[in-house]
Design a binder for these strands. Sequence first.
DNA 1: CGAGTATTTGAGCAGCATCAATAAGAGTGG
DNA 2: CCACTCTTATTGATGCTGCTCAAATACTCG
Lengths: 206, 206
Amino acid sequence: MAPDIVSVLDQICTDIRKPAKSVVFRQGEQADFIYFLQSGALRIDCQLEDGRNLVLDFLWPDRFLGIVENDVYAWSATALVDVHLKRLRRSTLQSLAQDYPRIMDLLLQQKSASLMAAKNHIILMSCPTATHKLIGFLLDYSKRPEYYNPATQMLTLVMSRKDIADYLGMTFETTSRVFKYLETHNYIRKINHRQIQLTPHILQDA
Amino acid sequence: MAPDIVSVLDQICTDIRKPAKSVVFRQGEQADFIYFLQSGALRIDCQLEDGRNLVLDFLWPDRFLGIVENDVYAWSATALVDVHLKRLRRSTLQSLAQDYPRIMDLLLQQKSASLMAAKNHIILMSCPTATHKLIGFLLDYSKRPEYYNPATQMLTLVMSRKDIADYLGMTFETTSRVFKYLETHNYIRKINHRQIQLTPHILQDA
DNA sequence: CGAGTATTTGAGCAGCATCAATAAGAGTGG
DNA sequence: CCACTCTTATTGATGCTGCTCAAATACTCG
């Protein structure tokens, strides 16, 4: 990411701040803007025709969102905590890409990051049991420096049981039961619903 | 895809033909080449540490493969039928990208296609039952003009039951049983293992 | 504090995995 | 072309996992 583009983008982007639980954009809306997540965390989900609500991804800082091929957003983005975003018109980015070829590198790099996340998601969903899925999820999550402290092994979940369930393709009851299983088998310690501590037992699986 | 690039690529690419069941590249190998699938079909799979074999995607003509970030392939590509590919050194493509900026568009477009496929894969894997998964798979598959004839509704499967199972995250026994279920409930007619006919019953679900 | 939401927990059942055996089909060499 | 082998697919029996519906509890926010 060359400094010249960053400074240019910095100047023309609009700063957007959204509180937790607010929607950044909604599936089906006119896709006028590209966003760049500065801080906080987002949930990307889509509503299927059969009524299912599917969480496609969780997004962390330094990630773009709203890069779509067609003219409407194919999924929704919701803030899980208070977020800070930079916003840019899609049309502006497109014209800018001609003067700054590095923007294409940036876009390609972001697409690659999305693709890697999707492949990892597929691997998680293919796990044979719900326990494997959740352990895999927690180990991935423990790579987020904002929400995991390796010194204390404390992990702050920014999403609900239902969000995790919709991400892993299971019900929230099962998610809750597996959390219980992990606690009784000494994989984790629960401080409260959103605060858990990982034990060496679960960490050595990584 | 501008004609100038295509003609340039055509000249410098090596033509590669591989018989069915042969491996194009293997997970972990030095990623020296980018491939462009001209005809046939490929299976992309990866071997996980726990011994599972996971099918990440099936690739059809006009798709690139081997676009990786690091220097080794993260997954393997295997020919499902006889395939025709064009091959290019990664380093050649990189230097070419400076003279032909359109190559970046091409790469971005291919990444987007991979990402869309992955999202769709996630949607399939999140289906509540194996029957839903397989019906979704067959309906997607029926969009391949090479292997589905809308006039006769005949569909030629290029992959095994195990391939389908590893793609959908289930066992091949379950795949087989669901095929049986679909046949007895008049969703499909089986001509042989690899040839099935879709009925209006299944097609109206799309 | 109180209302609404999120999470936990329970009981019963359906669906899928596992292990095992048989059948169908593909490939090979006489 | 047929017989034989090997691979792929089907089918069966059984047990476990996770879903459904339901109720109780914990937590959040105004």
